[in-house]
């Protein structure tokens, strides 16, 4: 290959420009690429709308709630998470090869990408800013309990913490522990307890005892 090494050409100044100038640069590049015939600008809105409206942590919450209620589905997730998740309609970009990791009374899992921002998009959507920023990426592997404390999570000292650094093309989904007091709840109601952060491993699933009674689902005897 005769291509010059990456970075051998100067990328014009950008990061320290004010936001309106950045917006102008982005718009100019979109126009330039469209005029060169390598971009259909209309695709941009469709892509953004997909991730703003359709793909997000509700998908992962569905997977987790089903795993909590359906032992055969959990077994499938353990054997072939990609196929089991795809059976619910979730898959594709940045989730092509999925692995689930299960929290237990003895072990807490959390995920990070120390090198960039690898994250299971089809089940969790676009990663939060903190997941992509230096403080989390630097310390999640070195001081996971300290990181969890910043999120307000305190684990018992005997609980082992396992941090998954997604340095390759596998994408990890944490299955948090099912909260006590949810016996008899259906999948849709359980999914409401599964937050994005609980599937990254920086939170636990919501405790129904701490929900406003008005928010309790019908399957739990609430009014919702």
């Amino acid at each position: 290959m005769d291509a010059p090494p990456l970075g051998s050409k100067q990328v014009p100044r950008f990061h320290d420009l004010p936001p309106d100038e950045k917006a102008a640069r982005v718009d100019a590049l979109i126009q330039l690429l469209a005029r060169k015939g390598v971009l259909d600008p209309a695709a941009i809105d469709t892509i953004v709308a997909t991730y703003e409206q359709d793909v997000g942590p509700r998908n992962g919450a569905h997977v987790v709630a089903k795993a909590w209620t359906d032992p055969a589905y959990l077994d499938w997730l353990r054997r072939d998470a990609t196929a089991a998740i795809a059976s619910l309609g979730y898959g594709g970009r940045q989730g092509e090869d999925m692995v689930v990791v299960e929290n237990s009374p003895d072990r807490h899992n959390m995920t990070v990408c120390t090198l960039c921002s690898c994250y299971p998009w089809p089940v969790l959507g676009i990663p939060p800013d903190w997941y992509k920023a230096e403080p989390y990426r630097s310390r999640a592997v070195l001081d996971p309990r300290g990181v969890l404390a910043e999120f307000g999570v305190t684990l018992a000292p005997e609980v082992e913490v396992r941090v998954w650094d997604s340095t390759a093309e596998l994408r990890y989904l944490v299955i948090p522990m099912r909260p006590a007091g949810t016996e008899g709840w259906d999948v849709a109601d359980l999914a409401r307890l599964v937050t994005r952060d609980s599937m990254i491993g920086t939170a636990l699933a919501l405790d129904p005892a701490r929900l406003d009674p008005a928010d309790l689902p019908a399957s739990a005897g609430g009014r919702a």
């Binding site: 120390t114 090198l115 903190w130 630097s138 310390r139 999640a140 592997v141 910043e150």
Partner: peptide, 14 residues
């Protein structure tokens, strides 16, 4: 970009 294990980046913006 290879940040794992470093100190000095401050608190996480949660």
């Amino acid at each position: 970009h290879d940040l794992g294990g470093m100190h000095g980046f401050g608190p996480i913006d949660v």
